[in-house]
Amino acid sequence: MAETDSPTQNVRAVTRALSVLSSFSGKSVQSLAEVTNATGLDKGTTRRLLLTLMSSGFIAQDPATQHYRLGRAIRDLAANVADDLDLRSLALPVLTELAGDVHGTAFLSVYDEGDVVCLDRIHDMKGIEVHWWAVGGTLPYNCGGAPKLLLAFQEPAEIERVLRQPAAALTPKSITDKAELKASLAKIRERGWELAVDDVALGLSALAVPVRGRDDAIVCSISIAGLTPQMVARNKPVHLARMQSAAAAIERRLKGAGRS
């Protein structure tokens, strides 16, 4: 009779897979040897676990370096994780009303060690739907309203670290020069918002403002995107006051939840 896996063996396999995933904490990429050393498993077992996790999207491999990184499935799951204040649920009514008022697409996003992750996207059926940023997806740090806004408010050392990474040129309007980008980030910090015109897709623009928590630290960003002529008038954002009002409403909900 064929031998079957025992419950103990199955649990051990899960534990080992989780140890492989956990080894990426604080690391963007790892070699096979690095994962092996971090988990304490032998090389053959580590390789088999990595291949299994790759097949389900939890691990990805760079074909040039053969190094491993966390896969898209991790980000997709993370987008559905509720923190203590359940940020998505608190922001949803405000974002829904905002999208309806401006007839555009509203986004909720957070900063994550150089990445800016979209937590939610709400579209008003009367306007153009912006598809460029899926829930759980990221945008380059130098393109779009929310990525530049959230990067601008990081500590100087973190900004320098991120700016050492190559800048993406999604359109001819994308800022790729480091000095120019640093100047742009300084301006964002000074005025407290960012209007990104045509730098992710030509003809589309995004306006982003910060949302602050009880300690006045920035928790997330909300942004809206739409056709540039509907977003910009005389080189100024059309919906800035409405965006700031929405951010203030989310801040009140955050602070109220924190007291409960």
Rank of each mutant, 00 (worst) to 15 (best):
D124T: 05
I128Y: 10
H103C: 10
D120T: 04
T105A: 02
Y111E: 01
G104N: 09
I128N: 01
V116E: 03
C118W: 04
D120Y: 06
V117P: 00
A99I: 07
G100L: 11
L98V: 11
D112C: 00
A99N: 06
V116I: 15
A99P: 04
K126I: 09
D112S: 13
A99F: 08
G104W: 03
G114P: 12
A106E: 11
G127V: 03
C118I: 09
V117I: 15
H123P: 00
S109R: 02
D112H: 14
E113V: 13
H103W: 00
M125N: 09
H123A: 13
F107V: 07
I128V: 11
R121M: 08
L119T: 03
T105G: 04
R121P: 00
G104A: 15
L119F: 00
L98I: 10
K126G: 05
G114A: 11
K126Q: 14
C118A: 15
D120Q: 14
I122Q: 14
G127Y: 04
H103I: 02
V102G: 08
Y111G: 00
K126V: 11
G127M: 05
H103F: 10
G100Q: 11
V117H: 00
G127H: 05
R121D: 02
Y111I: 01
K126D: 13
L119G: 04
T105F: 05
G127W: 03
F107M: 08
D112T: 10
Y111T: 03
V110L: 13
R121W: 05
D124S: 15
I128Q: 06
K126E: 12
D124I: 01
A99D: 11
L119A: 06
V110M: 12
H123R: 12
R121T: 12
H103G: 04
F107W: 08
E113D: 14
H103E: 13
C118R: 03
V117D: 00
V116M: 03
G127Q: 01
S109C: 08
C118E: 02
G104K: 06
T105S: 14
L119H: 02
D120L: 09
I128L: 13
D115C: 01
T105R: 08
A99S: 11
V117E: 03
A106S: 14
A106F: 10
A106P: 06
S109Q: 04
Y111A: 06
G104V: 10
I122G: 07
A106G: 11
S109T: 15
F107T: 07
V117W: 01
G104L: 07
V110E: 06
V102I: 15
A106W: 09
L108W: 10
G100N: 15
A99K: 07
T105W: 11
V102S: 06
H103V: 09
V116N: 02
D115Q: 09
V102C: 12
G114E: 08
M125Y: 07
Y111C: 00
G104T: 06
D124H: 13
D120S: 13
D101F: 02
I122W: 03
G114M: 12
D112M: 10
Y111L: 02
D101V: 13
G114K: 07
T105D: 07
G100V: 13
